[in-house]
Design a protein around this nucleic acid. Sequence first.
RNA 1: GUGAGCGUAGCCGAGCGGUCAAGGCAUCUGACUGUGGAUCAGAAGACCGCGGGUUCGAAUCCCGCCGCUCACC
Length: 399
Amino acid sequence: MQFLFELQHECTQTAARLGMMHTPHGDIPTPVFAPVGTQATVKTLAPRDLECLGATLILANTYHLYLRPGPDIVAELGGLHRFMGWRGPILTDSGGFQVFSMEGLRKVTEDGVVFRSHVDGSEHIFTPEKVMRIQEQLGADIIMCFDECATPTDYAYSRAAMERTHRWAERCREAHTRPDQALFGIVQGGIFPDLRRQSAEFIAGLDFPGIAIGGLSVGESKQDMYRTLELLEPHLPRHKPRYLMGVGAPEDVLEAVARGVDMFDCVLPTRLARNGAVFTRTGRLNLRNAQYTRDPRPIEEGCTCYTCQHFSRAYMRHLVMSDEILGLHLATIHNVHFLLQLMRDIRKAIAEDTFLAFKEQFLAEFRVPDEQVRARNRALRGSKQQARRRNHPEGKGGR
RNA sequence: GUGAGCGUAGCCGAGCGGUCAAGGCAUCUGACUGUGGAUCAGAAGACCGCGGGUUCGAAUCCCGCCGCUCACC
C-alpha cells in the first residue's frame, strides 16, 4: 500500500480543501490534526485513548527517539508502530527543528549539523542521509526532510537556510529508499515573500508526495504567518497534501485551512493541558483560576469528551492544583478532543460548502491571547533561555 | 522549677541601631504553536509575639508578660 492523496472537494469561497490520505496504516481524512507524541507517546494518553478520540495520525520525533532509545532498538522491536502499540498512521519529524532550536549548542555545516545531546551531553551529527536512515529504521508512514529552520526576521540568514534546506532536500530524496514511506519536502524562507515563493517552487519541483511549510509559528506575528500562507498557496501543487508544521492554535488552524492547508501538528493542546489550560468554544479556560473552585459545571457544556461527561471544573481544578496525574490525563483528553472535533467540524463544513461561515462564527466567539502580551513574553523567554544555555551548555537544551 | 535559645506574610527564613523589612515555597493573574509534568512574566500578602522603656531614629538595645524548643533538676 503506497501513499496516496485524493483531493475530494475544494471550497468555493476560500482555498480550503477536503481530502483523503491513504497510508499503509490507514486512511486519514483531511484537513487533519496530528497530536504530538515526541518520545513515541502522546503524553498522558494510551493508544486506546487516541483511538477513542478519533485520532487518525500522530507525530513522533526523530531527534528524541534517536537519542533514546535509539533507532536500532525501535527497529529491533518491530518499528515504531509495534514498539508503541499504535496501529494507525505515524509521521516522524526530521529533528531539524529540534537541532536548530538548540542555539549555541550546535554547529551547522554544509554536510549537516553537529550538536550535543540534551540527555547526556554527548556529541552527534545529523546529515540528510543519516536522518533518512534513522527515519527508515523508525518506520513511520510519513517522514520529513532534514531542514534548517531559521529565525524568521533575518533575511540573509533566512535565505542561506532556505538554500541549504533545498540542497538537503535533494540529498534526502536521493537517500530515501523505503517506498512504503512517504517523504515530504519542506518549504522555508521565513516571512519573506520572494524567498517563500522561490522555496515553494523549488520543493514542488522535487515532486515529493507531500509538501510541508516550515519556519512558521516560531515567533513571527500571526499576520505574518497568515500572509505567508496566502502567498504560498498558489505555488503549492494542488493534488498533494500541504502540511503546516507546528501549528495548532484553533484560530490558526482555521485561518490556515482557509489558505489551503491540509495537515497540522502541534504540542499546544497537550502542553496547555499539562499546564492546566483547556480549550472551550469561547477561548481558553485556565483551570487554576480561583473562580472554578466550586464550579459544578463541566469544562464545556455540551462537550462529548470523557472528561466533560464525568467531571466538574471544581474537580479538575482540584486535580490540577494538587498536581495529580489524573488531571494531566483528563485535561489532555479534553484538549485533544477539542482539536479533533474542530477538524471534524471543519471537514463537514467544507463538504457542505459552509466553511467560511463556520470559520467566521467560530472566530467571533473564540477569544485568543493578546498579541502584544505574547510578543513580550516570547522576547523575555527567549533571552532567558539563551542565558541559561550559555551558563549550562550541558543542560536541558532540547525540546 | 532552673538555665539557655528562639518568636519577622499561610509556611520556611534573611536582616541584629539608620532609605519604602531580602529571598524561597504556597496563593492570585497572564504567557506557552515541528513537546516543556518544564519554564517565564507580573501581582497580592507583614500592627517584625504582646506591653513598656532607651534613642533624633528600634524588627534590631533594655525590662516585663505570653508562647515554643532544648538542656538540667
